[in-house]
Design a protein around this nucleic acid. Structure first.
Lengths: 311, 311
DNA sequence: GTAATGTCTTTTATCGTGAAAAAACATTTT
DNA sequence: AAAATGTTTTTTCACGATAAAAGACATTAC
């Protein structure tokens, strides 16, 4: 089947949303930058838009003829990259339970179950291995290390080390640095979210990631910045996994963030250290509480497949 | 061409060396464990040994008939795994000069030049990316970030953080822990090497890695332990790259190691901290001095190929 | 009856191939 | 002549296929 054209479909959908706002589209290179794709893909998009009567296209002239209808969009599920599909599928199996530490992971079976080629699965597993949840036996299978309490503790240990250092570096950034404006913007968004918490509490995770990434970037260390990918991945799935008291947890976290932001703005190392420690401590608690020691939940339905096999 | 049988060839060679010592070989499963391969591979090895008259093989009876001759061995270069071949080839290009930050890496070209399939190169690059020297542009090429001073500084920053913590954890290990025996053994080896330094100075790098890995393991943190892979890789190639004053550098390092070991054995946190800091500081100096700021050496011969292309 | 050997099956490692997407080059338009 | 469009080439991404290697099962030896 070779390669899916999800890049084209996704960019097409995003381009459709642009149509609402303007009467005519910009030049091809400009559109390419806007959508983050090559001109080749832009031209495919324009071709289809012309065919389906959305625009009239003649050289530099791309006039919008009508507003897009729901049926103009490609189905959402066709816009995901293979890597995303595999990751979701793999994580669902991992969190669905029955995936205990020490189990073997079978590339071929995983590929068959997801309905993709083995190469893509292999590449995914290699990329995924840096999260510390799986390990390769040379010339043989992968071993699941498990989403355990030990994992969470090791992860948070590094996180705390890195974030304390980054926060300290952040506070020392010159006052004319652009980060202070970014921080102000994040503060405003935090306040808005805090006042709308009843309805928008699930928007917190995105804000959370943005704040922490901003702080980590102050370290100017690629290993620290890259490590946030591990944290972000875990929290992304953790938020989906642990919905208990989500609203209350997020409400607390927002207040901690605001205190943290205030401390950073004070540029007082001692204050920064205290606020940072406090937030990290409760973040660790939240994560740990979602991983009961002897977690071995069985899947609710018959979904348990042979992806993970007893060793 | 599918897959090379380097696992078999390498295990065969290693098995040949066993022949010198014994009159008859152990059982197939035992040999498998010994050589780290499956019984399937063991049987292939035994078959060939029988064919070439090295052993007489009848069921459980594997009698050695003669000592192996040089021509019995497979050539060394046929025993390397593809991943090793690709890594060496890639690193040679990287260190040969002309590989400046920002350049593009071309998978196809790299594959062609090394004479392997693109899949293997892709997988290598994904694995290699965790070292922080290259970065992927989505749906597009890889970008070389370069073996620069900034890289070395970021690397050592993390290394120092991790090692100080590991060393502190090491000193707190109970006295009956097995690590103290390992440490004693390493101390002896260090002393032996120190007295033979004139002839064996190039054996230091292996000892260096063993000591640091032992210490890092005390952290009981997979991220810290795994990070040593990055350091090991860099130092491995760095040792090949920078031969200037190698003997003297290693002599100093051995003394620092011995002081470090003594500090650990004292189990006094303050002493450990001092010895660790001192050694890390000179390790950083050594690494930094091998990366002159404006390094842009051109290759000595016409080896510069299109693997790295100007952006 | 445990542990080896003998045989058969499954999985991993690697390649060549082809479509999607990017990038390079050539031509036109303003 | 700078920046767009039109055209061609190259590269990336993903698949199925195949030999090497691992693993499972059946049989024999002690």
């Amino acid at each position: 089947m070779s390669k899916s054209n999800n890049v084209y479909k996704d960019a097409f959908n995003r381009c459709l949303r642009l149509l609402d706002e303007t009467q005519s589209l910009p030049s091809e290179p400009e559109l390419g930058t806007l959508l983050g794709v090559s001109r080749t893909t832009v031209r495919s998009i324009l071709s289809r838009m012309e065919e389906t009567g959305l625009i009239a296209w003649n050289k530099r002239n791309k006039t919008v003829l009508r507003t897009p209808r729901p049926e103009d969009f490609f189905p959402e599920e066709e816009t995901d990259s293979l890597a995303e599909i595999i990751e979701r599928s793999f994580m669902r199996r991992l969190l669905a339970g029955g995936a205990e530490a020490g189990m073997q992971i079978n590339e071929l079976e995983l590929a068959r179950e997801i309905g993709v080629g083995t190469t893509s699965v292999r590449e995914f597993l290699i990329r995924f291995s840096r999260f510390g949840l799986i390990e390769k036996r040379r010339n043989s299978h992968w071993v699941l290390k498990g989403f355990t309490r030990a994992f969470a503790l090791e992860l948070t240990e590094i996180r705390e080390m890195f974030e304390l250092r980054s926060a300290a570096a952040f506070a020392e950034l010159p006052v004319d640095s652009a980060v202070w404006a970014d921080l102000d913007r994040l503060e405003v968004e935090h306040r808005q979210l805090a006042s709308d918490i009843a309805t928008r509490f699930n928007e917190f995770s995105e804000l959370d990631e943005r704040l922490h990434r901003l702080i980590h970037r102050a370290s100017h260390n690629r290993f620290i910045v890259d490590f946030y990918d591990v944290i972000a991945m875990i929290f992304h799935y953790h938020y989906q996994w642990n919905k208990a008291e989500e609203r209350q947890r997020n409400e607390v976290a927002i207040q901690e963030h605001l205190a943290y932001i205030a401390a950073l703005k004070s540029r007082d190392p001692a204050k920064v250290d205290i606020a940072c420690r406090k937030h990290l401590k409760s973040a660790r608690q939240t994560l740990l509480s979602s991983i009961p020691e002897g977690r071995q939940a069985q899947p609710a339905d018959g979904t348990l497949t042979g992806t993970f096999a007893r060793a």
